[in-house]
Amino acid sequence: MDDRAKYRRELRGYAIGFASALALTCAAFATVHFDLAPAGTTIGIVFALGLIQLNVHFRFFLHIDLKKSARDDLQLILFSTLITLLMVGGTLIILFNLYHRMM
């Protein structure tokens, strides 16, 4: 494959990433702006769209995927995610528990 073809293929990757990120962003803002659902559902939809967009950015902008050669980076992300979940989850559980007891 010559350079031009590779260039076009990689450019297409960025363009797909940008277009889908844009669509997801607009969907999230539209859900809130036009009150498309009750408040609780809206927050759920926004968070779900945010998570999908997170994966789009990782895939198309940071080029992290499940291919073997990107595994080290992926493992680092998964480990960081684990630590983050423990710390954030722990913080939320302890402090909301504290709130509850102080009410």
Binding site: I43, V46, F47, L49, G50, L54
Partner: peptide, 10 residues
Amino acid sequence: IGIFSVVYLQ
């Protein structure tokens, strides 16, 4: 993405 979802839109 986290900021606009968690802070602004929420």
